[in-house]
Simulated scan of single mutants.
Amino acid sequence: MMSTTQIGFLIFPGFPMACLTSVIEPLRAANEISDQGVFGWTLISESGPRVTSSAGVVFKADATLADDCALDYLLLLSAPSIRFADDKTPALLRRIARHGVIPGAISGGVFPLVRSGVANRAPLSVHWCYAAAFASEFPDVPFSDRTIEIDPRCVTASGAAAAFDLALHLIDAKLGHAIATEVACWFQHPMMRKEGVHQIVPAPGTDGASTDLPPLVARAIELFTRDLAEPVPMADIADALGITPRHLERSFKRATGQNPTGYFRHLRMKAARQIVMYSDDRMGDVAAAVGYSSVQAFAKHYRNTFGLSPQEDRKRINLYRVEGNLPVPSV
């Protein structure tokens, strides 16, 4: 009889419910298909027994973090803006990791994972919609745009579909590829994505994803977004690509309907909004993080893009959190 792999889910208020079920359901199916209880799971909270998800559905935790749970993995699920309700939580997480439990996180759970000091320089997968906020809060912590990162020290998944892939990898390692494939087919999930697969990102101004863009345009975007705090001039991007600025502009117009300057400004504003939503950074720091030396110019472009100032946007978000008691949004 195989030993049981026990997975703990540390759920915080406002955690994305889909990320939880995207791990538990394939593990449950693997147990049924193999006719063995090879996977077990426990819902864990910081303290109280009831935790409300981002969808407003209330979950009853089986244990608290202070309880002595026999675990192989402990996965954190939360929105990025969550703060520990108990000052002892980071120390408890570090102690659990020292005792051989593999820590991990799904979606926004990577934020409290790093805040606790548990990540331990392991590769981290960060969802693209949180990347700018993550880089702002943790400038010295490397992360990737891969859907999942699996390391003996830590496992991370960028979102709900990626969490399903993480579960398939656990099933594959425990029961073999045939059962992992059957589980995927049960749920009509695409075949298990291998490690190293990059996240799919929407392409602003188009109906498709970044993977649908012409290679030249995609490469230009990659060059520009390497460091939004130091925007690369269009002439330098064109030179790096071996084309003229006019050729670059025509290529962008055909692919996105926008010129490069407008397209890149939109990317900067989307990154700025992440930092506004998921951090308490001063607006001058937010502006600098996306390459603006003038807060006034930054605020003007922000209002033109989103219809309100960054201060108004943060106030609106914080009001929602107070009234709904939920961090927003999470994926």
Rank of each mutant, 00 (worst) to 15 (best):
A184K: 09
W186Q: 06
H189N: 08
P190E: 12
P190C: 13
P190K: 00
M191R: 13
M192G: 10
R193P: 01
R193M: 07
K194F: 01
E195A: 09
G196R: 00
V197E: 11
H198R: 09
Q199S: 03
Q199L: 04
V201P: 00
A203M: 09
A203S: 14
T206W: 03
A209I: 06
A209G: 10
T211I: 15
T211D: 15
D212C: 13
V217G: 01
R219P: 00
I221Q: 02
E222M: 00
L223K: 02
L228H: 03
A229E: 08
E230Y: 06
E230Q: 11
V232P: 00
A235K: 14
A235R: 15
A240D: 11
G242A: 06
G242L: 05
I243K: 07
H247C: 08
H247N: 11
L248R: 07
E249Y: 09
R250A: 14
K253A: 12
R254D: 12
Q258W: 12
T261P: 01
G262V: 03
F264I: 04
R265I: 10
H266I: 09
K270N: 14
A271D: 11
R273M: 07
R273L: 11
Q274I: 07
Q274N: 12
Q274H: 09
M277I: 10
Y278Q: 06
D281M: 13
R282H: 14
R282F: 09
R282M: 12
M283V: 04
A287N: 09
A287V: 12
A289T: 07
V290Y: 10
Y292R: 04
S293N: 05
V295I: 08
A299M: 03
H301K: 03
R303K: 14
N304V: 02
F306E: 02
F306D: 01
G307S: 08
G307V: 06
S309G: 06
S309M: 04
